[in-house]
């Protein structure tokens, strides 16, 4: 299993470097921001966070017996091209891009080339939604902090590469706040009474990546890992 994690890490890191080296990415650097404070409340831009294979690192996450049972069966054999869910998208080392409008914030992820569209218009978008891989995200602004509530996720993903489990009762609260010209704090609270005895949270810092553009990422193109990971032919 360890070799799988190392392989997965190397794969992810490799694609991250590819983005940094893209010639197309050097075309246009955004205007240099001075420290006049005009960045406050503005999450717009391309960001990159530290690769976070263990979401519980530096925090206390106590599994329930149900959670322990599920964690003990995690063997890393997940289809590499199916969605990895909200927390693992943020854990990945590949860059993300945030696009902000008055009524909506969109997060574009280089990894898997997938997006999340988060309404901040006060309308209750959580009604009548079936469980999905990424669930339903509803945002609001708490001062200059974007708070995103995520519910109605299916239970087919893990919270991180190490396999920390969650159930279909998972409720995530993400708090994104620009803390400086080139920094954004990202905090995620995991509230899943079926898998953990109490809510816990993890935070880290994303850094602005001026001059970087997201590249295309197509997991299924020439995909050779699946048969090795899943033992299928």
């Amino acid at each position: 299993m360890k070799s799988f994690w190392i392989t997965a890490t190397v794969l992810l890191v490799t694609s991250g470097f590819a983005a940094a080296q893209s010639p197309a990415a050097k075309v246009a650097a955004p205007e240099t921001r001075t420290d006049s404070g005009d960045w406050k409340g503005d999450l717009t831009g391309v960001w990159q966070g530290p690769y976070t294979p263990d979401l519980t690192r530096g925090t206390v996450a106590v599994l329930t017996p149900w959670g322990q049972e599920k964690f003990s069966h995690f063997d890393g054999k997940m289809d590499p091209c199916l969605p990895v869910g909200v927390t693992r998208q943020a854990n990945a080392p590949d860059p993300i891009e945030i696009v902000q409008t008055p009524r909506r914030v969109v997060i574009l992820y280089e990894s898997w080339h997938i997006f999340r569209s988060i309404p901040t218009d006060g309308i209750d978008h959580s009604i009548s939604r079936d469980p999905t891989w990424f669930g339903t995200s509803v945002g609001h602004w708490d001062g200059d902090t974007l708070v995103i509530d995520v519910t109605k996720m299916n239970d087919k993903t893990a919270l991180d590469t190490n396999g920390h489990p969650h159930s279909d009762q998972l409720h995530l609260t993400e708090r994104l706040r620009r803390t400086g010209p080139a920094t954004m704090s990202y905090e995620v609270t995991v509230d899943d009474p079926k898998a953990y005895t109490q809510p816990w949270k993890q935070s880290r810092v994303f850094r602005l990546q001026p001059g970087i553009e997201l590249m295309e990422y197509v997991c299924l193109e020439n995909e050779r890992d699946r048969s090795h990971l899943l033992g299928i032919k």
Binding site: E97, V99, Q100, V106, I114, F115, L214
Partner: peptide, 20 residues
């Protein structure tokens, strides 16, 4: 279509894929 001054993005339901 999500339109901002320097960037327009198109979010495609098909494949949950985006375009800049």
């Amino acid at each position: 279509i999500v339109q901002t001054p320097g960037l327009i993005i198109i979010l495609y339901e098909s494949r949950t894929i985006f375009r800049q």
